[in-house]
Design a protein around this nucleic acid. Structure first.
Lengths: 221, 221
DNA sequence: ACCAACAATATTGTTAACAATTATGACAAC
DNA sequence: GTTGTCATAATTGTTAACAATATTGTTGGT
């Protein structure tokens, strides 16, 4: 049962950080857009120092760039960088799938199957956007099962940087159907508690996503 | 040719950040030690705002903890966390070894062999500290060959958090000899441009390090 | 001796002003 | 038209003071 929370006073810095983070993730702040401290402070109704600290954190996270005396801007992740991030994610999510196969209980497996079944419906309806959403849910659920703090954090950070590319790969012709099959292989391996198979399935899945991204780059988006 | 650099004015924030980072890495600031902004500001001869920003960055990096209105402290990484960090490193350095095997040229391979040969000498001399140093060099060289920005950054961050455990594993009886053999397997695989073998060798190497850490934990250090 | 209430202190959070640096625009020289 | 110089404006970097909060110490009662 949830107790009534005391006003939960959140500091201006944390407030600014989350709002900036969200704004970047939602695409309200575009790549290369400048982050002028005073403007943001007025927009968020906080002090400039808070915005300043928030920007420092986001820079450390790799989401914004900075140069001394020249300010900060939303960092534009290049296609080459995006591919690198996918390669790193492939091995990290592979590790997560490995752990998940070892730890999954009956309920977890049922949840995974439920999500995958919804993906199949969406595929039939040609609802690619919803497939993307369910895709995220499936990966998140696997991470949750794996119960691995370090990997979870790292993947979270990589995903944040990749946000601009998140809808690109599912649009490559034939990718949706293939993606569905790959996810099934992952879920099956986890259901059978076959850790190595789960890891391998996850890795080749993300490697295929990477290939799709490369293809979409070659075709000029 | 190097031009004369203009005084290279570094901002107080960046100055504070590096000095704090170094102090934590070198063990001058111990785990759980409080980071009082004013004290640090005086010690570094900078403004409190600079220290404050530096602390925010280090918190984002996971090196220090914070609570609102209660300040910051050097985060003490638990043994369980250290094991998680090693597991993540295993797959990331495995990826690096994979890439390195694909990209290594003759000079790179000669460099790797030179480092490994020095390790052998140190093993004969029972100089475990120097072995640790060469170990770091070997891994750094492989990362450099792999030429993978994303993986390099992630590993750098993981290593920073693990600093307190860096000398523990080599002290486990029999680890030094085994480590030497494992590194040889890695270097050989890279020399033969066998990417999969290199990745596998690196992964099992770091997994063995993890086992050694677990063992040293069981034995109460 | 133990505990509660309160005051004193230490520390962080926030604000505003000022200084230093970089970007912008006007104007003259060529 | 282009370029260079200069003044102006915009923006970041730094400082100091104040406010809010948490910690510590003291006092008085039992």
């Amino acid at each position: 049962m949830t107790t009534i929370l005391p006003p939960e006073k959140i500091s201006e810095t944390d407030e600014s950080y989350s709002r900036l983070h969200q704004a970047i993730m939602k695409g309200q702040l575009l790549p290369n857009e400048r982050l002028v401290e005073l403007d943001l402070a007025q927009k968020f109704d906080v002090g400039r120092a808070a915005v300043r600290a928030a920007i420092a954190r986001l820079a450390q996270e790799g989401l914004v760039g900075r140069e001394p005396n020249r300010g900060a801007w939303v960092r534009a992740i290049s296609e080459h960088e995006a591919i690198e991030l996918y390669e790193a994610r492939a091995v990290l999510e592979g590790l997560a799938a490995h752990k998940a196969a070892q730890l999954a209980n009956a309920q977890d497996i049922a949840d995974l199957r439920a999500i995958h079944s919804k993906m199949q419906s969406c595929f039939a309806d040609e609802d690619l956007l919803q497939i993307s959403e369910l895709n995220a849910q499936l990966h998140a659920k696997i991470l949750a099962i794996a119960n691995h703090q370090a990997v979870t954090q790292l993947i979270q950070r990589l995903k944040a940087q990749q946000v601009r590319f998140q809808y690109r790969t599912i649009l490559v012709p034939g990718r949706a159907r293939q993606s569905l099959e790959e996810h099934l292989a992952i879920v099956d391996a986890i259901a059978q508690h076959d850790a190595n198979a789960a890891e391998q399935a996850m890795r080749s899945h993300i490697m295929n996503v990477t290939q799709a991204l490369k293809k979409s780059i070659k075709n000029g988006f």
